[in-house]
Each structure stands twice: as structure tokens, then as C-alpha cells.
Simulated assay, not measured.
Amino acid sequence: MNKESETSAAPVRTVGKIKAGIVGGAGYTGGELLRILINHPSVDITFVHSNSNAGNLVADVHTDMLGDTDLQFTGQLSNDIDVLFLCVGHGDARKFLDANPVDDRIRIIDLSQDFRLSAASAIGSKNFTYGLPELNKSAIREAANIANPGCFATCIQLALLPLAKAGLLNKEVHISATTGSTGAGQSLSATSHFSWRNDNLSVYKAFGHQHLKEIRQSLNQLGSGLGAEDFSFIPYRGDFTRGIMASLYTESTLSQEEALQLYTEYYAEHPFTHVSGKNIDLKQVVNTNKCLLHVEKHGNKLLILSIIDNLLKGASGQAVQNMNLLFGLGEKEGLRLKGTAF
């Protein structure tokens, strides 16, 4: 089955448009979500919530949307929606749902880390399914609510899922990954100021990044059995705006040809993840919902390169991909985005 035919296999929603609400619409992920949904043919945005910007035009905050929308931010919430996107900080989604009852018929897609781990995937009567389509597509289609994966987690998991599924992920994995400045969120900090970030590179959270837990959870779901000590992850802050490039290597008995075949076959039915026989570079995915992968054999080591846009496939684009699956739409609907070639 080719990738395009797979995306049209789900039943198509025919009764009206999906009514969407967004909480946290003034930040980076909220802005990216707005840019996608205002052009999505099957969605109407009912409200965009922001306490700090209530009454302001969306285009006054996200100035590139001038001429695209007359929406205003609101401080009010409504249950007259089909889906609620939570684009809030880590820890704030659970607080929001504690303080604001949401009808169980409304699907929630949470972009924070609050419900990603299985031990914390519920609140009250609401349960959250981990929303990595390349791992859980069938479960997502039947889910009530979605915990959207983290950006580093998405990039790294997509590099390792085929090995785990084949029972070939049984040696220590070494990971080096660099993210753009938007990965730090919109609030200013010492390491997000232009004067510090520009022409600079730094390591942070070496060996202890929070996304490692969800990475191990997904790989163990496929039977890898690797423990915390088997992942050596060094994250870098890059001096560019958006995107993640991860390089991973592990011992493997696969040949170059066998590895390429394994990865190509695993992702044959997933429309946003593509395996390249040639080396890849970050601009190929910036402003798209794609993940590109490249594998190379070096002696007894298998090198895997993985690239995504941290705000799209790593956040808001994947959230819309999950929404499409939840509501029986074509998986690529509203996500045929133009990349940045130069």
C-alpha cells in the first residue's frame, strides 16, 4: 500500500466542520496551530483563549497572520466545540483541567508533557492516548484524548522504532541532537536572548532530558527492553530558529541495504515519515510536518539521522495529524505545507 492510499482509508467526516478551541494561543505552538487550522478545510476555530491577550486581535500578536484572520483572543471558554487543544506549559494542562471542567464528549489534544507517560495518563474520567501516529495509529483513531509527543521524543523515536519493532534494538544507543531556539518556548530566558543564542552552541540536560522517559516507554512498547542506562543523550541548543537534527548510532549486524529496507518498509504506510538514501539536511523539513531519516553503516555501527521541524511534526503539526485521525479525516488534510528550500 502506498502512502497516499493509506491516508484516505479512514472514514470521512461529512456532518459539518470540526469546531476547535485553543487554549494558550499566544505562544509558539499556539501560533503554529492557528496558522494550520485557519487554512484547514474541515475546521472552524470557535475560540482562541489567552488570559494575557484577551480582547486583542490574533494578528496583533502573530503579526504574520494580518489579512488571514479577524479572530480575537478571549478570556472565556466554551463547551460548544468538538476538540480542545491545550498549548500550555508543562504542568499547566493538568492544572487547567482541574480548574475548568471539559465535557467528556470533547476530544482533548494536549501539547504539554502532562499526560505522556502511562503512569500519569489520566485525570478524573479522562484518559489520554500517546499520540505518535507511527506507533499508535490504530489506538489514536479510537482514542478519547491525545497526549501529543515531545519534539525531541518524536525525532528520536522515529529514528529507532523500526529497530525496536524488528527486535534489533538491544545495544546501547548514543544520541546527539540539536534544536532551534523556538524549542525553548516564547518566554525569555538567559539562553534564549538573541545576543546569547546567535553564533553560539551549548549542551543542556546531558543524559537527563525529560523526553527520555517517553522514548523508553514507546520503545519498550515494541519490546526493546532497554533501560535508562542504555540511552546516552546529549541535547544541544542551536543558533537557528526552528528544527531538530538528531544523529544516533548503535551496534548492529544489519548491512546498509538491510537497514534501508527495514526502515523503508516500516514507514511505507506513514505519509509524513520518509527514508532517504542520500544524506539529509534540516531545511528539507523546516515548515513541514515531515520527518526525514537516513541510515548509514560504519563498521559494526548503524548511524541514523533524523530531522523534523520542532514546532510542526514536533508539536502543532502532529497535533493536527492526530486530530485528523481522531475525526476520520485524511491524515494529511490541512498539512500539505510548503517547506523552506532556501
Results as ranks from 00 to 15, higher is better:
76 Q>H: 14
173 V>Y: 01
125 S>A: 10
110 D>R: 07
150 G>Q: 10
76 Q>T: 14
96 F>I: 06
137 K>H: 13
82 D>V: 03
111 L>K: 06
99 A>W: 01
75 G>M: 05
136 N>Q: 12
108 I>P: 01
59 A>P: 01
103 D>Q: 11
134 E>W: 01
168 L>K: 14
173 V>C: 05
117 L>F: 10
46 T>Q: 02
56 N>M: 13
103 D>N: 10
63 T>M: 05
83 V>L: 10
119 A>S: 12
124 G>S: 03
73 F>Q: 00
108 I>L: 03
67 G>L: 07
120 A>W: 13
122 A>V: 11
161 L>G: 02
89 G>K: 07
76 Q>M: 08
61 V>M: 01
60 D>K: 11
137 K>E: 14
119 A>T: 15
163 L>F: 07
123 I>T: 07
68 D>G: 04
173 V>N: 09
155 C>A: 13
52 S>K: 14
62 H>T: 03
65 M>T: 10
123 I>C: 07
172 E>M: 12
148 N>P: 00
51 N>T: 15
142 E>T: 04
75 G>K: 10
105 R>C: 03
117 L>W: 08
128 F>P: 05
139 A>N: 14
61 V>T: 11
98 D>P: 06
141 R>H: 06
76 Q>V: 11
122 A>Y: 10
162 P>V: 05
100 N>S: 07
156 I>F: 02
57 L>D: 04
145 N>D: 07
106 I>E: 06
136 N>P: 01
48 V>W: 09
172 E>H: 09
149 P>C: 08
51 N>E: 10
161 L>T: 14
160 L>D: 08
74 T>P: 00
103 D>I: 04
50 S>A: 00
117 L>C: 04
93 A>P: 00
121 S>M: 04
68 D>C: 13
57 L>M: 12
162 P>Q: 05
147 A>Y: 00
130 Y>E: 13
82 D>T: 01
79 N>L: 07
113 Q>A: 15
51 N>W: 05
118 S>L: 13
165 K>N: 06
57 L>Q: 14
46 T>I: 10
61 V>I: 13
141 R>Y: 02
60 D>Y: 06
167 G>C: 03
126 K>Y: 04
116 R>Q: 06
77 L>K: 08
160 L>W: 02
172 E>C: 07
172 E>Q: 15
139 A>I: 13
155 C>W: 05
97 L>M: 12
116 R>P: 01
154 T>R: 15
124 G>Y: 12
77 L>P: 00
113 Q>T: 09
72 Q>R: 15
81 I>W: 01
169 L>N: 00
97 L>C: 08
